[in-house]
Simulated assay, not measured.
Amino acid sequence: MATDLRWRRILLKLSGEALTGKGGFGIDPAVTSRIADEIKQVVELGGQVGVVVGGGNFVRGAQIASSGLDRVSGDHMGMLATVMNALALNAALTSRGVPARVLSAIAVPTICDSFTQRAALGHFQAGRVVLFAGGTGNPFFTTDTGAVLRAVEMGCEVVMKGTQVDGVYSADPKTDPTASRFDRLTHREVLARGLSVMDATAIALARDNRIPVSVFSIGEPGAFVAVAAGGGRSTLVTVEDANSG
């Protein structure tokens, strides 16, 4: 039942690295399968799920630019990497009987349909998982910004960002043992403190459209389902602070 979920229409944002497992590069079928299983569980609870996956497991435009290649070309390569990741996740979902569609912001008609808001909303309403590929379709914008943009266009109630840690910290907890974890923040606090949640453009877009961002560990089995249902361990970034109202 949809009432078992905290949010009914969810935009799940994953980094490309989330699909690599322990290999550090490419796509680990076991990891992709587990994530697909969790998406299936949320759908069975009545959720409507859109997914944006980055392409960092294959290529990052900014890194390519730092090595001397044109940044625009690098970003286009990164967009193509997100298409590959979306296709992999789409295959894993389909094999589990979960109807899904890949919609790309860059035209690759022999592989998948191009994104339009109208088509994407139709897929949501038909009960399909929508995999948004190609970022925003423009260079110089991150897939975090693309995820929030799609969430706004789709009327999503939350952006759930799956990371390698269980929330937002004051510093990288993997390198700084004194880093403190936040249970709740506002978009304004994230921007003012320069916290590594999403890039500033993405956070500002979420703030302006009053979309909360829930940050959790995608590496923890079952975390996506638990947090979507209102439990689990995460940091919630909202417009209002915890003491308002």
Rank of each mutant, 00 (worst) to 15 (best):
98 V>M: 06
147 A>Q: 01
135 G>L: 07
111 I>F: 13
146 G>D: 03
133 A>D: 12
96 R>H: 10
79 M>D: 08
129 V>D: 09
97 G>M: 06
119 A>T: 14
135 G>F: 10
124 F>M: 05
130 V>L: 06
142 T>G: 05
134 G>A: 11
148 V>R: 00
95 S>P: 07
121 L>H: 01
95 S>M: 13
132 F>Q: 02
120 A>Y: 02
121 L>E: 08
94 T>M: 05
136 T>Q: 06
137 G>T: 04
80 L>T: 12
103 L>D: 08
76 H>F: 15
150 R>N: 01
101 R>G: 04
132 F>D: 01
140 F>P: 01
110 T>Y: 07
111 I>P: 00
136 T>S: 15
149 L>N: 00
112 C>A: 15
102 V>P: 03
104 S>L: 02
139 P>S: 11
114 S>L: 07
95 S>D: 15
146 G>I: 03
119 A>Y: 09
142 T>A: 09
117 Q>S: 08
76 H>K: 15
121 L>P: 00
84 M>I: 15
138 N>H: 12
137 G>V: 05
96 R>F: 08
78 G>A: 13
124 F>K: 01
76 H>Q: 15
79 M>S: 07
134 G>R: 04
98 V>F: 04
86 A>N: 09
134 G>D: 10
87 L>N: 08
148 V>L: 00
116 T>M: 07
124 F>Y: 14
117 Q>Y: 00
101 R>E: 12
87 L>T: 11
145 T>R: 01
105 A>F: 10
104 S>A: 13
92 A>M: 13
106 I>H: 10
110 T>K: 15
122 G>L: 05
149 L>V: 00
118 R>H: 11
77 M>F: 14
123 H>A: 12
118 R>V: 13
95 S>C: 14
122 G>K: 05
114 S>I: 13
